[in-house]
Each structure stands twice: as structure tokens, then as C-alpha cells.
């Protein structure tokens, strides 16, 4: 399957950004019209043979005020992986459409995103249940304005006497003392 040709075909009907052909078998492309996501996913699954949802993950672009969601799809027969990216406004509450009815596995990923990034997927089964954190009351820990070092210092007691070395400087001073 030729990915360039596929992207061209899709661009005629969907609003896609500029594709990145990272490897012969790995392509990334942005979808600029969030409302068309489900239509595009169903088309990719049923017509183009991308039957497998590899993963669904998020990136916090705090400077741009955006969350990026990446849907990694795989076409086994053609050995092609397509990363479909959409951008959400980074304002509370963040919500997005659930795709658990297209791929049941998405349910787990959406639970994780809800817990770690605070992105809610209304209608997804058990999405409000705890995923790996237990009794978490602070802001979702994978958001970049959550400072894990500060949090850990305010929560857990340090043992005095712990020293930290920058590995690079440390090795340099040990192995090349003259500089």
C-alpha cells in the first residue's frame, strides 16, 4: 500500500494537515477538523484495512495551550502504521469524543487519559474509575504544570544527606580531572 497515495485520496474528502513520512512503514498526519474524527477512523478501519488500534496517547503542549491526541492505527496486511493526530483546546474541562464503540480497547486508553491528563471521554465505559492511581486528589500528574519534584518534596520526607550529582559533570571530573 502506498501511503502517499492513500493520504492524497483521504485529503480529497477530509481536512488533513501535511503528512510526515517518518519511515517506509510509519506515517503521521494531522486532522484539522475534529468533528470528522469518527468518520475518518471508521473509514480507515473498514475500507482501508487499518483494523488495529495500537495505542491512543496524549501530549501536553502547554505553551500552545493545546492537547494533542495521537491515534496509532495499524494495517497488518500492508505492514503500515498511521498516526492520526488531533488537537484539543487546553481549557478545563477538556472533553473529547469517545471511540470505544469503534475499538473496545480504546476504553482502557481513555480511562488512562482521563486520569493522567484529565481529558474526559463522556460515554466511555468506566471512564471515571481509577486507573492506576488510588485516592488521587491533586491535578492530573501528566499535565506539565504539575511539578512532580515539588509535589514529592511537599508530600514525602527527605532523608538528610542525600547528594545529587549531574552524571555528565561527575564523570568528567572523575575521568578527566585536568579538564
Amino acid at each position: 500500500m502506498d501511503m502517499r497515495e492513500l493520504i492524497e485520496r483521504l485529503t480529497s474528502r477530509h481536512k488533513l494537515g501535511a503528512p510526515i513520512f517518518q519511515r517506509p512503514d510509519l506515517t503521521f498526519v494531522d486532522l484539522t477538523d475534529n468533528d470528522r474524527l469518527r468518520a475518518l477512523l471508521v473509514e480507515l478501519r473498514d475500507i482501508e484495512g487499518f483494523t488495529h488500534l495500537v495505542l491512543l496517547t496524549a501530549v501536553d503542549w502547554i505553551e500552545e495551550g493545546k492537547f494533542q491526541l495521537t491515534y496509532m492505527l495499524n494495517n497488518r496486511a500492508a505492514n503500515q502504521t498511521l498516526g492520526l493526530r488531533v488537537y484539543l483546546e487546553r481549557k478545563d474541562p477538556v472533553e473529547f469524543t469517545s471511540i470505544h464503540d469503534i475499538w473496545p480497547t480504546a476504553e482502557t486508553y481513555q480511562r488512562e487519559l482521563r486520569e493522567m491528563f484529565g481529558i474526559n471521554f463522556p460515554g466511555s465505559p468506566r471512564v471515571m474509575d481509577e486507573f492506576i492511581l488510588e485516592g488521587w486528589t491533586d491535578m492530573p500528574p501528566y499535565r506539565r504544570d504539575f511539578d512532580t519534584l515539588a509535589y514529592s518534596q511537599q508530600t514525602y520526607r527527605d532523608r538528610p544527606g542525600r547528594a545529587t550529582n549531574d552524571p555528565r559533570d561527575h564523570m568528567k571530573s572523575k575521568m578527566y580531572p585536568e579538564g
Partner: peptide
């Protein structure tokens, strides 16, 4: 378990077990 080890800045692991 002594002082957090390499998880010294983790938000979800304890640092001193003897607490």
C-alpha cells in the same frame, strides 16, 4: 527504600520506608 533512590522526585513513591 532508604531515600527514594532514583525515584526521589516521583509523585507516587515514598522516600523513607522507616516513616
Amino acid at each position: 527504600t532508604i531515600n527514594g533512590g532514583m525515584y526521589w522526585d516521583s509523585y507516587n513513591t515514598i522516600k523513607r520506608l522507616d516513616d
